[in-house]
Design a protein around this nucleic acid. Structure first.
Length: 919
RNA sequence: GCCGGGAUGGCGGAAUUGGUAGACGCGCUGGACUCAAAAUCCAGUGUCUGUGAGGAUGUGAGGGUUCGAGUCCCUCUCCCGGCACCA
């Protein structure tokens, strides 16, 4: 055994051992229960960053832990290899995205291997390979046949200078990131996948996922957004023709408070008004430059203009003005909304801004309760006043004043959130007094009778637009023929291969210039035709890779029967940022595959662990052109205020000022990723893994700091040194108490306390800590598993070897410690397990379980509190009953001191824990 | 803005789910070893107060429930993730 811990040697040796034994190859034939452990595959951005190390170490710990507990484990790995960064790299370095991507994969694969992950590399895949993306195309064609895929117009960001479509990420404050040009909205045709056809099932099946975090299920449910409302129409006459303006609302109870209607700029009514009204025309034009992003839509200044047109209120018959609003989107719902300024915050602000009338039609339950509470109590109670936040002195009798303060509805003042609360109708004619559901029922019935509307279920979820006007993606298998229109590529001509030698230059899709790709013959009529140049959203690639891993990689089928053995994934691990889109798309894709008879499962991921993001500082600066550039944290010097908070930064290169953007996810595009390579080279993979797991629990956001790496490494060195010592003692083959004392160097020295108690205490500590660690593993709280291993080493190291049998306690404890630590630090534990002669392969060892006999104790310590404050403690027999404990506590000097001769009002005894004396 | 989550010493975090707040580690301070340094080992370390035993105070802010609140309830502040073309 080497006297010093040398991670380079032992890690290489351990990895070679696993390689030789093909230790992580998964076979679908097994008597053992299966465990499919999957970490989200990486985008090959160039180098791993700490988020990857965190993600894959968590997965590896769980995979190895299950392997040791007797499961048949599959842990695969691959590459989410299509995407925008490859094109950006091509623009910057003039290298084809394919070459850049394959080089990155090679480098990152070697990085992953050096971390010692228990991956079955025989199942590696890359989504940019034709044998993979062929099946994207094949399934897309099946969806087309079933009417799940279809074509319609989509709105995109258009950079007028580069003449190209921009991703949302590439639009900074309404301008193109490279050109600084003001971005325009453009409508172009594109393909959509009908995920809304599965909305009901996607929502309902969340209940079949007990192994998912509640927060993720809540987010998905809110995203799908099932709502029960009323769709109805405002009739109007235009150019002598009777027309209807349709809207949808979930608040039909407020319909009598409608004072205007707002339509999108692209709505036919707005378009009509624009023809004769220059003001409307100008506004419609201006709306072309508003953002397509929801976050921008929600925060931007709400603006509008009166079209001068009027529609008829379907129930009152009143004439209602029609406005164009920049906050109404043509693509969503009807492209028009009813406005009830009294009970909707957005409408309220809009009405006040443009001096439109506000009509109150709802009185809330709170108002009713408040009024009732006041009248019944006569006196104003503080609790009631504070609950309703009425600024009036408590205890007075000014009931009418309090009522007027709370009940006052004043459109001249600011909006109050309570205006949007549910309640009962007022100022609503025949509907007065009806509560929400009654009012909605009555109003829907009346509208239906007039043929102007009905109840309708609506979803927030929209169909999935999959067309991307980009080169580095999976080609959409469509051929455009002048005679036959859009024709699907026949199955036997799949895959439509993407040429791998293009170099994008930022001005549109290079496929447009590739005659060899573009020109083809129409499969229907045989005439010359053009290929579709749009490629698929990369979320398509990641929507089914898990089922491909789990199958035999057949060239003649998307998946095979093996997928039904491994699937669903038993543990999926990935960043919380994927909580909605990726996970929802994957669930949808699985259900489509199931309906096509390809797979037999409804849901792809049985258990989900959402890893917290690894954050680092973000620094950026505007370029001369108005675009944006990012600086890596190592390129700048922080500027801090007196409180030590980061306020800005300076470039180390030229001392110029750089903007501080706060903390954010490590990413290639923001240049704030930390490469683990230096860490691995200096300290080894085990230290990197240990530190990452110890830093915080998996689900928690982690702000990157590397202080503490030393500590993790120190622990491994201490462990190594301790094992060296133990091996030396072992080699002396001690036969007596004297032998063991001589070997451990305590012979003839005085030992404090009673040496016979030490092994018992240490052994209990080991088993108790193991119990906690095993429990933490089930909770996937891995940072405290590391603490447990540290505690065990502390316990073993503190304990003097006095009797011959004490050495057995050490050997037992050490075997527990090594096995517990092995999923986190597989290399060092592999080496030590063999060195100390426990066996050949720690992976084949049984997982340790705490022994009841080691945990037993007959006396326990109880805490004594007086009025909930800690005042002392006492030792009592484990079997002592409540009355005995109460007597002991009352007799305790600390309690006597507090009582000062008085008597206790009450004594609370919590068995095994504490006694609280109330005086 | 909307949806979801978070906030505990100088720092990362722990707390058996309402029962001893600060486990474990980092950092810092002091000491041992050394010609010296590194490494290693030992001791201390929330804050205030006290020579000391001790006392007071303390889990983002404010209020509430309880014998007892980091944990439950209400209100607020700040931070992070997502918002449909980053992946």
């Amino acid at each position: 055994m080497q006297p010093n811990y040398n991670p380079k040697d032992i890690e290489a040796t351990a990895q070679q051992y696993w390689e030789d034994k093909q230790a992580f190859r998964a076979e679908a034939k097994s008597d053992k229960p299966k465990y499919y452990c999957l970490s989200m595959f990486p985008y090959p951005s160039g180098k791993l960053h700490m988020g990857h190390v965190r993600n894959y170490t968590i997965g590896d710990v769980l995979a190895r832990w299950h392997k040791m507990r007797g499961y048949n484990v599959l842990q695969p790995m691959g590459w989410d290899a299509f995407g925008l960064p490859a094109e950006n790299a091509a623009i910057a370095n003039k290298v084809p995205p394919a070459k850049w991507t394959y080089d990155n994969i090679a480098y990152m694969k070697q990085q992953l291997k050096s971390l010692g992950f228990a991956i079955d590399w025989s199942r590696e895949l890359a989504t940019c390979k034709p044998d993979y993306y062929k099946w994207n195309q094949w399934l897309f064609l099946r969806m087309l046949e079933k009417g799940i895929a279809y074509k319609k117009t989509q709105v995109v960001n258009w950079d007028p200078v580069d003449q190209t479509v921009l991703a949302n990420e590439q639009v900074i404050d309404g301008r193109g990131w490279r050109t600084g040009a003001i971005v325009e909205k453009r409508e172009i045709p594109g393909y959509y996948l009908g995920i809304t056809q599965y909305a009901e099932e996607l929502l309902a099946d969340l209940d079949k996922l007990p192994g998912w975090p509640e927060r993720v299920k809540t987010m998905q449910a809110n995203w799908i957004g099932k709502s029960f409302g009323v769709r109805f129409a405002f009739p109007y006459t235009l150019d002598g023709k009777d027309e209807k303006l349709w809207v949808y609302t979930t608040r039909a109870d407020t319909i009598m408070g409608v004072t205007f209607v707002a339509v999108a700029a692209e709505h036919p009514l707005a378009q009509h008004a624009a023809k004769s009204n220059a003001q409307v025309a100008a506004f419609v034009e201006k709306c072309k430059h508003t953002s397509v992003m929801e976050a921008d839509m929600a925060t931007m200044e709400k603006e509008g203009v009166d079209t001068g047109l009027k529609v008829t209120h379907p129930l009152t018959g009143e004439q209602v003005p029609v406005w164009v609003g920049n906050y109404v989107l043509m693509g969503y719902g009807e492209g028009a909304v009813m406005a009830v300024p009294a009970h909707d915050e957005r409408d309220f602000g809009f009405a006040k801004k443009y001096k439109l009338s506000i009509k109150r039609v709802i009185k809330t339950y709170d108002e009713l309760n408040f009024e009732k509470g006041l009248r019944e109590n006569h006196l104003l109670e503080p609790a009631l006043l504070s609950k309703y936040r009425v600024p009036i002195a408590a205890g007075t009798e000014h009931i009418e004043e309090a009522l007027s303060l709370y009940l006052r509805f004043d459109p001249d003042e600011d909006w109050k959130p309570s205006y949007a609360d549910y309640g009962f109708c007022v100022n609503s004619g025949k509907y007065d007094g009806l509560i929400y559901q009654q009012a909605v029922d009555a109003i829907a019935a009346d509208l239906k009778a007039k043929g102007l509307g009905d109840k309708q279920v609506q979803w927030r979820l929209r169909d999935w637009g999959v067309s991307r006007q980009r080169y580095w993606g999976c080609p959409i298998p469509i051929i455009h023929c002048d005679t036959c229109g859009s024709v699907p590529v026949p199955d036997d001509q799949l895959p439509v291969k993407l040429p791998e030698d293009c170099v994008p230059d930022g001005s549109g899709n290079p496929l447009h210039k590739r005659a060899d790709f573009l020109n083809c013959t129409c499969p229907k009529c045989g005439k010359p035709a053009k290929r579709e140049t749009d490629t698929m959203d990369t979320f398509v690639d990641s929507s089914w890779y898990y089922s491909r891993y789990a199958s035999g990689f057949k060239s003649d089928a998307m998946v095979d029967e093996e997928t039904n053995y491994w699937m669903p994934v038993d543990q999926y691990i990935g960043g919380i940022e994927h909580a909605i889109l990726h996970l929802l798309y994957s669930r949808f894709w699985t259900k489509v595959m199931r309906d096509l008879g390809l797979v037999k499962y409804d849901e792809p991921f049985a258990n989900l662990l959402t890893q917290g993001m690894v954050l680092n500082h973000i620094f950026s600066r505007r370029t001369d052109k108005g675009g944006i550039e990012y600086f890596a944290p190592e390129e700048v010097e922080l500027v801090k205020d007196e409180a030590g908070r980061v306020t800005g930064a300076k470039s180390l290169a030229d001392g110029s000022t750089v903007d501080y953007q706060g903390m954010g996810t490590m990413s290639k595009s923001k240049h704030n990723g930390v490469d683990p390579q230096a860490l691995i080279e200096q300290y080894g993979a085990d230290t990197a893994r240990l530190f990452m797991m110890f830093a915080s629990p998996p689900e928690q956001t982690l702000e990157w700091v590397d202080s503490g790496v030393e500590g993790a490494h120190r622990f491994l060195k201490r462990l190594w040194n301790f094992c060296v010592l133990i091996q030396k003692i072992q080699e002396t083959n001690p036969q007596s108490d004297d032998d063991i004392q001589k070997a451990s160097g305590i012979y003839g020295k005085h030992i404090m306390g009673s040496p016979s108690q030490y092994p018992k205490v240490a052994r209990r500590e080991i088993h108790l800590t193991l119990k906690q660690a095993n429990y933490d593993l089930t909770k996937q709280q891995l940072n405290t598993v590391v603490s447990a291993a540290m505690k065990m080493l502390n316990a073993l190291g503190e304990f003097p070897l006095y009797r011959k049998e004490d050495f057995e306690v050490i050997l037992e404890g050490l075997s527990i410690l090594l096995r517990l630590l092995s999923p986190i630090c597989p290399h060092i534990t592999h080496a030590l397990w063999r060195e100390l002669g426990y066996g050949d392969d720690i992976l084949a060892a049984d997982w340790p379980e705490p022994l009841a006999a080691a945990l037993e104790q007959d006396e326990i310590e109880l805490v004594i509190q007086v009025n909930g404050k800690l005042r002392g403690s006492l030792r009592a027999a484990k079997s002592a009953d409540k009355a005995t404990l109460e007597q002991l506590a009352l007799a305790h000097e600390a309690v006597q001191k507090q009582l000062a001769g008085g008597t206790a009002k009450k004594v609370v005894v919590v068995p095994g824990r504490l006694i609280n004396v109330v005086i």
